[in-house]
Design a protein around this nucleic acid. Sequence first.
DNA 1: ATCCAGGCTCCTG
DNA 2: CAGGAGCATGGA
Length: 316
Amino acid sequence: MNVLMGFYFIGVIEMWKHKGIEFRREIQDVNGADMLAYLGRNQKEVLHRVNLENKSVMKAIRIQKEVVLIKLAILDKELILSFPQLIHPTMQIAKAATDFVDEWFDLSRDLQPFYDLAHRDEILKEVVLAYKGLRIIAVEELFEALSWSIMGQQISLQVAYGLKQKLVTTFGESVVHDDIEYWLFPSAEKVASLNVEELRNLSFTQRKAEYLIGVAELIATDQLNKEQLLVMSLGEMETRLTAIRGIGKWSANYVIMRCLRHPDAFPLADVGLHNALKKVLNQSEKPSLAEIEEWAKNWSGWRAYATFYLWRTLQE
DNA sequence: ATCCAGGCTCCTG
DNA sequence: CAGGAGCATGGA
């Protein structure tokens, strides 16, 4: 059975090799330790669960109509994907899950041009040496990415994670494995059906509640989708997203960076970015927006990656 | 206590 | 059209 399945999978999923109940992909230039640190940075995260001892992350994802739990070990030279709740994953599920991981960790991107650029940049030079192999971790679902940017506006990450936890555990779906609950972000359809009061009960502000429901309606009615955005230029993406009530330049660029994966998206107004620059430059005050824009000229093409690497410095 | 958190809209003058 | 109030909550 396994031999047959092995032949079946090979060739279908190029980079991934099937061995027994596991799928393995050899990796280079992936900084697993820092990826796991980023994934595990907040205790209130409910959409995945990191286990630093076995260097793995567990996450429930939706494949077609099915909810599938995946376990991904991130080792030095390879990724190991397995399905804790499935004895015989179908080819369709294996293909979708490996595709998910490839995109989640931006595995197809060659970071060498970014390293070259950073090596010539006084601000990024040491940061990029320190975290080399860190890749932008995606928020794959457009609705989740937009929601997260709305929840993150103005307030601290702690409060934002608290809002997300309440939203997800109140209106999302979950699967249970070994007595642990793994959550999926609620669907746009579900959130579009809510009223403002129901979100206010979860400590959302009036505004945040209105924004979230509005975005949910746009996605649920397919007036907005990831496919239409992905074919746009960076500027067009920003224009389209900032036309949505509740989505300003910061949120738009956050979504473009984390979900649409444009490597040059740049959340200029981001407080985390400001604090990271203050820290890296060892200054007593946060830099001005004008200064940051000036420095960022040298990061052109890779400003999203520059931002993600700078964020990483805040966790230490 | 006061200020600041991975901002945005809307209302003033 | 620039500038500022208001949002709601938790941690320093």
